[in-house]
Protein backbone atom coordinates (compact mmCIF):
# COMPACT_ATOMS: atom_id res chain seq x y z
CA UNK A 1 0.00 0.00 0.00
CA UNK A 2 1.54 3.30 -1.04
CA UNK A 3 -0.24 4.95 1.88
CA UNK A 4 -0.02 8.35 0.19
CA UNK A 5 -3.78 8.89 0.33
CA UNK A 6 -4.03 7.99 4.01
CA UNK A 7 -0.96 10.08 4.82
CA UNK A 8 -2.27 13.09 2.96
CA UNK A 9 -5.65 13.02 4.70
CA UNK A 10 -3.91 12.61 8.08
CA UNK A 11 -1.75 15.67 7.39
CA UNK A 12 -4.79 17.69 6.39
CA UNK A 13 -6.66 16.58 9.46
CA UNK A 14 -3.94 17.92 11.69
CA UNK A 15 -3.88 21.10 9.62
CA UNK A 16 -7.62 21.33 10.28
CA UNK A 17 -8.76 21.64 6.71
CA UNK A 18 -10.32 19.71 3.87
CA UNK A 19 -8.64 18.68 0.62
CA UNK A 20 -9.15 19.99 -2.87
CA UNK A 21 -9.15 17.20 -5.46
CA UNK A 22 -9.14 18.53 -9.01
CA UNK A 23 -10.11 16.19 -11.83
CA UNK A 24 -8.76 16.41 -15.36
CA UNK A 25 -9.08 13.93 -18.22
CA UNK A 26 -5.74 12.43 -19.17
CA UNK A 27 -4.47 13.74 -22.49
CA UNK A 28 -7.00 16.58 -22.70
CA UNK A 29 -6.58 18.59 -24.83
CA UNK A 30 -3.25 17.04 -25.83
CA UNK A 31 -0.54 15.04 -24.11
CA UNK A 32 1.96 17.83 -23.66
CA UNK A 33 -0.50 20.42 -22.33
CA UNK A 34 -1.97 17.86 -19.97
CA UNK A 35 1.46 16.94 -18.61
CA UNK A 36 2.16 20.62 -17.91
CA UNK A 37 -1.18 20.99 -16.12
CA UNK A 38 -0.58 17.90 -14.06
CA UNK A 39 2.92 18.91 -13.03
CA UNK A 40 1.70 22.27 -11.69
CA UNK A 41 -1.51 21.13 -10.00
CA UNK A 42 0.04 20.52 -6.57
CA UNK A 43 1.68 23.93 -6.49
CA UNK A 44 -1.65 25.45 -7.45
CA UNK A 45 -3.40 23.95 -4.46
CA UNK A 46 -4.33 20.39 -5.41
CA UNK A 47 -4.02 18.13 -2.37
CA UNK A 48 -4.78 14.97 -4.33
CA UNK A 49 -5.25 14.63 -8.08
CA UNK A 50 -7.88 12.67 -9.92
CA UNK A 51 -7.02 11.71 -13.49
CA UNK A 52 -9.71 10.53 -15.87
CA UNK A 53 -8.94 7.52 -18.06
CA UNK A 54 -10.70 8.39 -21.33
CA UNK A 55 -13.45 6.03 -22.51
CA UNK A 56 -15.57 6.21 -25.63
CA UNK A 57 -18.82 5.56 -23.75
CA UNK A 58 -18.73 7.26 -20.34
CA UNK A 59 -22.28 6.61 -19.20
CA UNK A 60 -21.97 8.39 -15.84
CA UNK A 61 -20.52 11.58 -17.27
CA UNK A 62 -22.18 14.71 -18.56
CA UNK A 63 -21.35 16.50 -21.81
CA UNK A 64 -18.20 18.28 -20.53
CA UNK A 65 -16.28 15.18 -19.48
CA UNK A 66 -17.58 13.17 -22.46
CA UNK A 67 -16.16 15.81 -24.76
CA UNK A 68 -12.86 15.88 -22.87
CA UNK A 69 -12.55 12.12 -23.26
CA UNK A 70 -13.17 12.32 -26.98
CA UNK A 71 -10.55 15.09 -27.34
CA UNK A 72 -8.04 12.92 -25.54
CA UNK A 73 -8.87 9.80 -27.55
CA UNK A 74 -8.60 11.80 -30.74
CA UNK A 75 -4.99 12.60 -29.98
CA UNK A 76 -4.31 8.93 -29.33
CA UNK A 77 -4.57 8.69 -25.56
CA UNK A 78 -4.51 5.15 -24.20
CA UNK A 79 -4.33 3.52 -20.80
CA UNK A 80 -0.69 2.71 -21.40
CA UNK A 81 0.08 6.36 -22.08
CA UNK A 82 -1.95 7.43 -19.06
CA UNK A 83 0.28 5.27 -16.88
CA UNK A 84 3.40 6.68 -18.56
CA UNK A 85 2.21 10.20 -17.76
CA UNK A 86 1.65 9.28 -14.12
CA UNK A 87 5.12 7.74 -14.00
CA UNK A 88 6.67 10.94 -15.32
CA UNK A 89 4.72 13.02 -12.78
CA UNK A 90 5.75 10.72 -9.96
CA UNK A 91 9.42 11.22 -10.82
CA UNK A 92 9.04 14.86 -9.75
CA UNK A 93 6.47 14.51 -6.97
CA UNK A 94 6.65 11.71 -4.42
CA UNK A 95 3.89 13.00 -2.13
CA UNK A 96 0.75 14.00 -4.04
CA UNK A 97 -1.68 11.09 -4.26
CA UNK A 98 -2.91 10.17 -7.75
CA UNK A 99 -6.29 8.56 -8.25
CA UNK A 100 -7.29 7.17 -11.64
CA UNK A 101 -10.97 7.41 -12.47
CA UNK A 102 -12.80 5.76 -15.33
CA UNK A 103 -14.68 2.77 -16.65
CA UNK A 104 -13.88 -0.90 -16.50
CA UNK A 105 -13.60 -1.91 -20.15
CA UNK A 106 -10.20 -0.35 -20.98
CA UNK A 107 -8.77 -1.96 -17.81
CA UNK A 108 -10.39 -5.32 -18.62
CA UNK A 109 -8.88 -5.23 -22.10
CA UNK A 110 -5.47 -4.13 -20.78
CA UNK A 111 -5.65 -7.11 -18.43
CA UNK A 112 -6.38 -6.67 -14.73
CA UNK A 113 -3.21 -8.26 -13.43
CA UNK A 114 -0.94 -6.40 -15.82
CA UNK A 115 -2.78 -3.15 -15.21
CA UNK A 116 -2.43 -3.40 -11.43
CA UNK A 117 1.28 -4.17 -11.73
CA UNK A 118 1.88 -1.29 -14.15
CA UNK A 119 -0.29 1.17 -12.22
CA UNK A 120 1.44 0.37 -8.93
CA UNK A 121 4.90 0.74 -10.39
CA UNK A 122 3.90 3.99 -12.14
CA UNK A 123 2.96 5.50 -8.79
CA UNK A 124 -0.83 5.37 -8.93
CA UNK A 125 -2.40 5.37 -5.45
CA UNK A 126 -6.05 4.67 -5.97
CA UNK A 127 -8.73 3.69 -8.45
CA UNK A 128 -12.30 4.82 -9.00
CA UNK A 129 -14.11 2.62 -11.50
CA UNK A 130 -17.61 3.90 -12.02
CA UNK A 131 -19.23 0.80 -13.45
CA UNK A 132 -17.93 -1.72 -10.93
CA UNK A 133 -20.39 -1.84 -8.01
CA UNK A 134 -19.58 -4.05 -4.97
CA UNK A 135 -21.40 -6.92 -6.72
CA UNK A 136 -18.30 -7.20 -8.95
CA UNK A 137 -15.64 -6.81 -6.25
CA UNK A 138 -13.77 -9.92 -7.25
CA UNK A 139 -13.01 -8.56 -10.72
CA UNK A 140 -10.89 -5.56 -9.80
CA UNK A 141 -11.52 -4.24 -6.27
CA UNK A 142 -10.10 -7.19 -4.36
CA UNK A 143 -7.11 -7.71 -6.69
CA UNK A 144 -6.40 -3.96 -6.50
CA UNK A 145 -6.43 -3.99 -2.70
CA UNK A 146 -4.15 -7.02 -2.76
CA UNK A 147 -1.79 -5.16 -5.09
CA UNK A 148 -1.59 -2.25 -2.67
CA UNK A 149 -3.89 0.22 -4.43
CA UNK A 150 -6.77 1.96 -2.71
CA UNK A 151 -10.17 1.22 -4.22
CA UNK A 152 -12.38 4.25 -3.79
CA UNK A 153 -16.06 3.52 -3.90
CA UNK A 154 -18.85 5.88 -4.87
CA UNK A 155 -21.80 6.34 -2.53
CA UNK A 156 -24.81 8.17 -3.94
CA UNK A 157 -28.13 9.66 -2.83
CA UNK A 158 -29.74 6.34 -3.82
CA UNK A 159 -27.38 4.34 -1.57
CA UNK A 160 -29.70 3.86 1.40
CA UNK A 161 -28.74 2.67 4.87
CA UNK A 162 -29.42 -0.92 3.93
CA UNK A 163 -26.99 -0.80 1.03
CA UNK A 164 -24.35 1.52 2.48
CA UNK A 165 -22.48 -1.21 4.42
CA UNK A 166 -22.00 -3.20 1.19
CA UNK A 167 -20.64 -0.11 -0.54
CA UNK A 168 -18.27 0.68 2.33
CA UNK A 169 -17.10 -2.89 2.90
CA UNK A 170 -14.04 -2.91 0.65
CA UNK A 171 -13.68 0.85 0.24
CA UNK A 172 -10.28 2.20 1.09
CA UNK A 173 -8.43 5.51 0.86
CA UNK A 174 -11.57 7.59 1.04
CA UNK A 175 -15.27 7.38 0.23
CA UNK A 176 -16.47 9.45 -2.69
CA UNK A 177 -19.96 10.79 -2.10
CA UNK A 178 -21.71 11.66 -5.35
CA UNK A 179 -23.81 14.58 -4.17
CA UNK A 180 -26.54 14.37 -6.81
CA UNK A 181 -28.51 11.68 -8.59
CA UNK A 182 -27.25 12.50 -12.03
CA UNK A 183 -24.22 12.63 -14.28
CA UNK A 184 -21.16 14.84 -13.81
CA UNK A 185 -21.39 18.57 -14.29
CA UNK A 186 -25.13 18.92 -14.61
CA UNK A 187 -26.66 20.10 -11.34
CA UNK A 188 -25.59 21.01 -7.80
CA UNK A 189 -26.74 19.72 -4.45
CA UNK A 190 -27.48 22.07 -1.54
CA UNK A 191 -24.92 22.22 1.22
CA UNK A 192 -27.23 20.98 3.95
CA UNK A 193 -28.21 17.80 2.12
CA UNK A 194 -24.53 17.14 1.46
CA UNK A 195 -23.60 17.68 5.12
CA UNK A 196 -26.32 15.25 6.20
CA UNK A 197 -25.15 12.62 3.75
CA UNK A 198 -21.53 13.03 4.87
CA UNK A 199 -22.63 12.51 8.47
CA UNK A 200 -24.57 9.41 7.46
CA UNK A 201 -21.41 7.93 5.91
CA UNK A 202 -19.23 8.97 8.87
CA UNK A 203 -21.49 7.05 11.24
CA UNK A 204 -20.58 3.90 9.37
CA UNK A 205 -17.02 4.49 8.23
CA UNK A 206 -13.84 5.97 9.59
CA UNK A 207 -12.58 6.78 6.08
CA UNK A 208 -12.35 10.38 4.92
CA UNK A 209 -15.36 11.46 2.84
CA UNK A 210 -14.89 13.38 -0.39
CA UNK A 211 -17.80 15.04 -2.16
CA UNK A 212 -18.09 15.58 -5.88
CA UNK A 213 -20.44 16.08 -8.85
CA UNK A 214 -21.81 19.60 -9.21
CA UNK A 215 -19.11 21.64 -7.41
CA UNK A 216 -18.09 24.49 -9.70
CA UNK A 217 -17.20 27.58 -7.71
CA UNK A 218 -14.86 28.45 -4.84
CA UNK A 219 -17.95 29.20 -2.72
CA UNK A 220 -19.47 25.78 -3.40
CA UNK A 221 -16.12 24.13 -2.71
CA UNK A 222 -15.85 26.05 0.57
CA UNK A 223 -19.36 25.00 1.58
CA UNK A 224 -18.54 21.36 0.95
CA UNK A 225 -15.19 21.69 2.73
CA UNK A 226 -16.96 22.74 5.91
CA UNK A 227 -18.61 19.32 6.26
CA UNK A 228 -16.62 16.90 4.12
CA UNK A 229 -12.93 15.94 4.07
CA UNK A 230 -12.47 16.81 0.41
CA UNK A 231 -14.14 18.58 -2.50
CA UNK A 232 -13.74 17.12 -5.98
CA UNK A 233 -14.04 19.52 -8.91
CA UNK A 234 -14.09 18.10 -12.44
CA UNK A 235 -16.46 19.48 -15.04
CA UNK A 236 -15.73 23.12 -14.13
CA UNK A 237 -12.02 22.58 -14.81
CA UNK A 238 -12.64 20.58 -17.95
CA UNK A 239 -14.90 23.41 -19.15
CA UNK A 240 -12.02 25.79 -18.52
CA UNK A 241 -9.85 23.62 -20.77
CA UNK A 242 -12.55 23.62 -23.46
CA UNK A 243 -12.94 27.41 -23.23
CA UNK A 244 -9.26 27.89 -24.07
CA UNK A 245 -9.12 25.94 -27.32
CA UNK A 246 -8.82 27.63 -30.67
CA UNK A 247 -11.16 26.97 -33.58
CA UNK A 248 -9.11 23.92 -34.59
CA UNK A 249 -9.37 22.48 -31.07
CA UNK A 250 -5.73 23.21 -30.19
CA UNK A 251 -4.70 24.61 -26.82
CA UNK A 252 -4.36 28.40 -26.76
CA UNK A 253 -1.22 29.72 -25.06
CA UNK A 254 -3.25 30.96 -22.07
CA UNK A 255 -4.90 27.58 -21.34
CA UNK A 256 -2.52 26.31 -18.67
CA UNK A 257 -2.55 29.58 -16.71
CA UNK A 258 -6.35 29.79 -16.89
CA UNK A 259 -6.97 26.25 -15.64
CA UNK A 260 -4.39 26.54 -12.86
CA UNK A 261 -5.85 29.93 -11.91
CA UNK A 262 -9.20 28.25 -11.48
CA UNK A 263 -7.60 25.57 -9.32
CA UNK A 264 -5.96 28.24 -7.14
CA UNK A 265 -9.28 30.00 -6.61
CA UNK A 266 -10.92 26.71 -5.64
CA UNK A 267 -8.04 25.92 -3.28
CA UNK A 268 -8.44 29.29 -1.58
CA UNK A 269 -12.11 28.53 -1.10
CA UNK A 270 -11.35 25.17 0.46
CA UNK A 271 -8.54 26.50 2.64
CA UNK A 272 -10.64 29.42 3.81
CA UNK A 273 -13.21 26.97 5.10
CA UNK A 274 -10.90 25.74 7.84
CA UNK A 275 -12.98 23.76 10.31
CA UNK A 276 -10.81 23.84 13.39
CA UNK A 277 -7.85 26.09 14.21
CA UNK A 278 -4.59 24.39 13.33
Amino acid sequence: MSGRITRRFAELKSAGRAALIPYLTCGDPDVETFARLLADLPASGADLVEIGMPFSDPMADGPSIQAAGLRALKCGMSLKQTLAIVRAFRAGDAATPIVLMGYYNPIFIYGVERFLADATSAGVDGLIVVDLPPEHDEELCLPALAAGLDFIRLATPTTDDRRLPAVLKHSSGFVYYVSIAGVTGTKSADARAVAEAVERIRRRSSLPVAVGFGIRTAEQAAAVARSADAAVVGSALVDEVAAHLDAAGKARPDLVAAVLGRVRALAEGVRGARRVPA
Binding site: M59, A60, Y104, V130, D131, L132, P133, E135, H136, R153, L154, A155, T156, P157, T158, T159, D160, R163, V167, V178, A181, G182
Partner: peptide
Protein backbone atom coordinates in the same frame (compact mmCIF):
# COMPACT_ATOMS: atom_id res chain seq x y z
CA UNK B 1 -25.90 -12.59 -10.08
CA UNK B 2 -27.21 -12.25 -13.59
CA UNK B 3 -24.47 -14.22 -15.28
CA UNK B 4 -24.54 -16.50 -18.26
CA UNK B 5 -21.19 -18.19 -17.74
CA UNK B 6 -18.66 -15.34 -17.82
CA UNK B 7 -21.13 -12.92 -19.43
CA UNK B 8 -23.90 -10.62 -18.22
CA UNK B 9 -23.67 -9.14 -14.73
CA UNK B 10 -24.49 -5.67 -13.47
CA UNK B 11 -21.79 -3.23 -14.48
CA UNK B 12 -23.58 0.00 -13.61
CA UNK B 13 -22.92 3.12 -11.59
CA UNK B 14 -23.81 2.92 -7.91
CA UNK B 15 -26.69 5.37 -8.43
CA UNK B 16 -28.45 2.77 -10.55
CA UNK B 17 -27.69 -0.30 -8.44
CA UNK B 18 -30.61 0.10 -6.02
Amino acid sequence: RGRFGAYGGRYVAETLMP
